[in-house]
Amino acid sequence: MEREASCACGKLRIACRGEPIRISICHCLACQKRTGSVFGMQARFLKGNVRHIAGDSTRFTREGDSGGTVSFHFCPHCGSTVYWELSGVPEAYAVAVGAFADPTFPAPRVSVYESRRHDWVDLADLPDIERLG
């Protein structure tokens, strides 16, 4: 299977083969600010399974709560974050699940920073999800 994610204007794209090694949602306050939503959602793909990255990107790097860094690649034309690199997982790219624009994309299996999850976010339909922090 191959999936392609892109920004809103289509000028920044990443194509990934196979299944993600992790699909997760993050409730940290930085992800809430970055996405403008109540959590961010990512699918991690091994770099060897990324067929291509096309288009220009602007990079924003910040330190995470864990002490590692994360470098977000976003489109300089429309501003959409498409993928990012985590210093703690150098063998993979994280891709914004929404950038795939695929309602059949698999559900998350991990939920992090649960202590910052909005009370009304209900994950009851995901009984096997691993909950961290």
Rank of each mutant, 00 (worst) to 15 (best):
H118F: 15
I53Q: 00
C9E: 06
T61V: 05
G48E: 05
K47P: 10
S6G: 12
S115D: 11
V38S: 14
A94I: 07
A101M: 10
D65V: 10
H73E: 01
F100R: 02
A94Q: 01
F74Q: 02
A54D: 15
P90M: 09
A99I: 00
C31W: 09
A96M: 14
I21W: 01
G98W: 05
A107N: 04
C9L: 07
Y113S: 08
V82T: 09
P90T: 07
S71E: 09
F60S: 07
Q42N: 15
Y93C: 07
G18T: 05
C28K: 00
Y93V: 01
L132C: 13
Y93P: 00
D119C: 11
S111W: 00
E4G: 04
R17K: 15
D128C: 02
R22A: 05
A15F: 02
F39S: 06
V97P: 02
A43D: 04
P103F: 07
E19P: 05
F74V: 04
E85K: 05
R51C: 07
S66F: 03
A5P: 01
A30T: 15
R109M: 05
H73F: 06
T58K: 10
F39M: 14
R13C: 08
F39H: 12
V82A: 01
S80G: 14
L12V: 10
M1A: 10
S66N: 12
P127H: 09
A96H: 08
A5G: 02
C28F: 12
A99Q: 04
N49D: 15
G48F: 01
D119V: 11
A15R: 04
P76E: 04
R131Q: 06
R44V: 00
S87R: 03
V38Q: 13
A8L: 14
E4M: 09
M1C: 09
S115E: 07
G68S: 13
Y113H: 14
E91M: 12
G68C: 11
D122S: 09
M1F: 11
A99P: 09
A15T: 11
E130V: 07
T69G: 14
T35P: 06
V82D: 03
D125F: 14
G36A: 14
M41E: 12
R13Y: 00
L46S: 02
V89S: 00
A124W: 00
Y83T: 02
L12C: 08
C75V: 00
I129E: 01
S24Y: 08
V89Y: 06
G10N: 03
K47V: 08
A124E: 09
L126W: 08
H27G: 03
R117I: 04
T58E: 09
W120K: 11
A92I: 12
K33G: 08
G79I: 08
C31R: 06
K33D: 07
A96G: 05
